[in-house]
Structures are given as structure tokens and as C-alpha cells.
Amino acid sequence: MNTLPSLEEQQEHFRRLLSRFSTAMLVTHGQTHSFHARPMALAQVETNCRIWFLTRRESAKAHEIETDTRVLVICQREHDAYLTLTGRATLVENRAKTEAIWKEPFRVWFPDGVEDPDLVLISVVPENGEFWDNSGFRKINSFMESAAAYVAGRQPRIAEGEEHGVVRL
């Protein structure tokens, strides 16, 4: 008998999957009730799924977050792992935190490094997440189930909580 993974197991699965991404699309609410999405490097993912990004204080995304803290984070890797996270973003000025999460490739965007006076952190505190994970052994299972579904003329069966899950963070 198959049992669904517990909420804690799904949250841990979500956290492990999130920690494997290095980039994401950060979606903010624009000034005219529109959405703005832009690719961002994930500076840090904490064990509670809190995400840290770096940006410029005078960027459009920083101003949008000041107006509306609701954000959506979207991650995708090839055709085997997808993840969305909704949460609340805040701008944080904290030199110690910036130094702790700084990576040398960030210098492309911030040539003065952690000393850049326009550098500010974006902290995203998660509220909800959803994932689709067909990585590793799941990829083989997904392929086999999809092939069987095609032959049988039905939709593939998805292992809820393992391949797909919705979690409250």
C-alpha cells in the first residue's frame, strides 16, 4: 500500500530540490499592476527555504518590492525539475550577511564587491511551494509511466508528494 509522504517529508524534499538550483526567475509586482520577471542568481538558500538575492538599491525590482512585498520565485532545470515558491520579499542592508553569502562571480554585476554602496540584499521568506521532480531515478520511472500511458491511451500517473507536491512553508 502506497502512502503519501508526510508534510515534513514533502517540505524536506522541496528544500533539497530548491538547494540544487543556482538561478531562478524572480517575479515582482510592477507599478501598473503588471508582473516583472527577471533571472537572478540564488546567493543563498537557507534550511527553512528562505532565499537571498543581491541587487542594486536603485533597481526596478527593489522599488517594486518596496511597494508590494509579494513575490514568486520560479526554478527550472532542463526537463526534470521545476519549482515555484511564493513569499514575501524585503530589502536588507547587512554587510555581515552580504560578506557571508558573497561569491566572486557576483563581481560581474557589482564590480566594487561587498563595498559597492548600491548593493542591497533581497530576502524572500517563503509561504508556499510547489514542485515537479523527475530527476534521478524518478526520471526513469516518469519515462516508463509516460510510455505506458501513451500505449494505453491515458494520462500518466504522477506520484503525488514525490514527483509533484504542494507544500506550506
Rank of each mutant, 00 (worst) to 15 (best):
M1F: 08
M1N: 10
N2E: 12
E9H: 09
E9K: 11
E12A: 15
R16A: 10
L17Y: 03
L18N: 03
R20M: 11
R20Y: 00
F21I: 06
T23S: 10
M25N: 08
V27L: 09
V27W: 05
Q31A: 15
H33C: 10
S34Y: 08
S34Q: 15
H36V: 14
H36W: 15
A37C: 09
A37N: 11
M40N: 02
A41L: 12
V45F: 05
E46H: 07
E46P: 03
T47K: 14
N48D: 15
N48L: 06
C49R: 04
I51G: 02
A60L: 12
I65G: 00
E66R: 15
T67F: 09
V71Y: 01
L72S: 11
I74H: 14
I74N: 12
Q76H: 09
R77A: 13
R77I: 06
E78K: 07
H79C: 04
D80L: 00
A81H: 04
L83P: 02
L85A: 05
T86L: 03
G87Y: 00
G87S: 03
R88G: 05
A89K: 06
T90V: 14
L91P: 02
N94K: 08
R95V: 13
K97H: 09
I101F: 11
I101W: 04
P105K: 04
W109A: 14
P111Y: 11
D112Y: 12
G113P: 05
V114N: 02
E115H: 15
D116H: 06
D116W: 07
D116R: 09
P117T: 11
D118K: 15
D118M: 12
L119N: 09
I122M: 05
V124N: 01
V124T: 01
V125L: 10
P126Q: 10
E127F: 01
G129W: 04
F131I: 07
D133I: 07
G136S: 08
F137V: 03
R138T: 02
I140H: 00
N141C: 10
F143V: 11
S146C: 08
A147L: 05
A148S: 04
Y150S: 08
Y150L: 08
Y150I: 01
A152L: 10
Q155H: 09
R157W: 01
R157Y: 01
I158P: 04
A159I: 08
E160T: 11
E160Q: 13
E162V: 15
E163R: 00
H164E: 12
H164K: 13
G165R: 09
R168T: 15
